[in-house]
Every structure is written in structure tokens, then in C-alpha cells.
Computed example of a mutant assay.
Amino acid sequence: MHFLDKVMELNSVLMALGFGSITVVGKGIYNQVKKSKYKTEQRFKNLEFANVALLHDKIYQQCSFFIGQGWVSVDDLENLEYLWRGYHNLGGNGTGEILYNKVKDLPNKKMEG
């Protein structure tokens, strides 16, 4: 019986080590996934910010042109609305909104050609 007790004790130690190893590996995988998720979320926020900046720039350029021109075509106004909708839905506002509303108030003319 003494020999069998030693085998059982050794088996218990090996099982504990095996379970501990699984726990350590599992925790390591969890930490890597958590870190990767955080990096992905940060990257997504940066891309979203960059998109808002690009849309703002394009809206600003187009609005400045149309305001200086004194009129806007229906097609150009529709195109500007697509840009505005994306910009607004991503949280952009401020000067972009002010300029967009000024262009919406401009007279509409048909494009020649």
C-alpha cells in the first residue's frame, strides 16, 4: 500500500502542475487578446478621427468654393450632402455644419454642359 500511496501523491502533484500550466497559458492568451482588442479599438478611433478630419477638409473646400461662387448646382449640393451625412454621423459639427447650412441656402442652378 505504501507504494500505491506514493504513486497517488506523485499523480496529484503532476495533475496540479498540469492544471497550473493550463491556467498560466490561458491567462497569457487572455492578456494577449485583451491587449490586441485595446490596440484595435485605439486604431479604430484614430481612423475615425482621420476620416472626420478629411471630410471636414473636403466640406470646407467645397463650401468655400460654392459660397464664393454664389450658387450651387443640385448635383453638387447632393454630393456635399453625402459628405456632410458621413461627417455628421461620425460626430463632426461646428464650422462644417455652419458652412454646409450656408451652401444649402444658396440659389441652385443647373450645370452647363
Rank of each mutant, 00 (worst) to 15 (best):
M8S: 11
M8T: 07
S12E: 12
V13M: 02
M15T: 13
L17W: 08
L17V: 09
G18W: 01
G18D: 03
G20W: 02
I22G: 09
I22W: 07
Y30D: 02
N31H: 12
N31C: 09
Q32P: 04
V33N: 11
K35H: 10
K37T: 07
Y38D: 05
E41H: 05
Q42R: 12
F44T: 08
N46G: 06
N46K: 15
N46L: 11
F49E: 08
A50L: 13
A50W: 10
N51C: 03
N51S: 07
L55A: 00
L55C: 01
L55R: 00
K58V: 01
Y60G: 05
Y60Q: 10
Q61W: 10
Q62H: 11
Q62Y: 09
F66I: 01
I67L: 04
I67F: 01
I67V: 09
G68C: 12
G70C: 09
V72P: 00
V74S: 10
V74M: 09
D75I: 14
D76Y: 05
E78L: 07
L80W: 01
L80A: 01
Y82P: 07
Y82A: 14
L83Y: 06
W84A: 04
G86Y: 01
G86P: 02
Y87S: 03
Y87L: 06
L90C: 10
G91E: 03
G91K: 08
G92M: 04
N93F: 12
N93Y: 10
G94K: 05
T95K: 14
T95N: 12
T95C: 04
I98W: 02
L99M: 09
L99C: 04
L99T: 05
Y100I: 00
N101Y: 12
K102G: 05
K104W: 06
K104T: 10
L106A: 00
L106S: 05
P107E: 02
